[in-house]
């Protein structure tokens, strides 16, 4: 997971290079198709609508949704999951809306991201958001000053989140473990 290190992302070559027979994971596309949103991965016929309509791809030298989808179909699990470009999708859903084969491209990317961090350290921007949510209920820690300003401007006080309930849900999904691990 890159952090504002544009040069590294754009120079990335993990997706490039000849495919070796031994690196193919034949169960990978089944794994994706079994996740909600990944069901139609096999339907992609590589027309390239996703990439040509992707606002990010227009300004990135490396992010190409069609390429990611193809490599996922081929079972190049290691390459796809270690690719930093995976984290450049803005989830605008233009690709999903326009895919003539009804592949939920943005959802496949989300599935790949979820798999990429499974059992691993959570990338730090998400760790921070995750910790904030589990500890305060909101993705950002709203400063005391803001809360005072709210009162001054006549806005109602922010409702307090139920932290105990969120903790329970984070325990149930293993999410609390994911943010503890990376401390």
């Amino acid at each position: 997971m890159p952090q504002k290190n544009v040069k590294d992302i754009e120079k990335e070559d993990v997706l490039k290079g000849p495919i070796r027979a031994g690196e193919i994971d034949f169960g990978f596309r089944k794994e994706i198709a079994a996740s909600p949103g990944g069901e139609k991965l096999r339907h992609c016929y590589q027309c390239g609508t996703c990439t040509s309509d992707c606002p990010i791809a227009r300004f990135s030298d490396s992010y190409r949704p069609r390429e990611i989808i193809r490599m996922a179909q081929l079972g190049l699990k290691k390459r796809v999951l270690s690719s930093n470009t995976l984290w450049l999708c803005a989830a605008c859903y233009t690709c999903t809306d326009r895919c003539p084969q009804d592949v939920e491209v943005a959802s496949v990317i989300r599935i790949l991201r979820n798999l990429a961090v499974k059992g691993k350290l959570i990338p730090s921007p998400f760790k921070e958001l995750g910790k904030n949510i589990v500890e305060t209920g909101t993705a950002y820690r709203i400063p005391e000053l803001r809360l005072k300003k709210r009162a001054k401007t006549g806005l109602p006080p922010l409702p307090k989140s139920n932290i105990k309930a969120i903790e329970k849900l984070a325990e149930a999904t293993g999410f609390s473990q994911m943010i503890k691990q990376s401390d």
């Binding site: 996740s35 909600p36 984290w87 989830a91 989300r110 599935i111 991201r113 979820n114 961090v117 959570i122 990338p123 998400f126 958001l129 995750g130 949510i133 993705a139 849900l169 984070a170 999904t173 293993g174 999410f175 994911m178």
Partner: peptide, 9 residues
């Protein structure tokens, strides 16, 4: 914000 890392959460 957590969808990219944990869809279930």
């Amino acid at each position: 914000p957590l969808d990219p890392v944990n869809h279930e959460m």
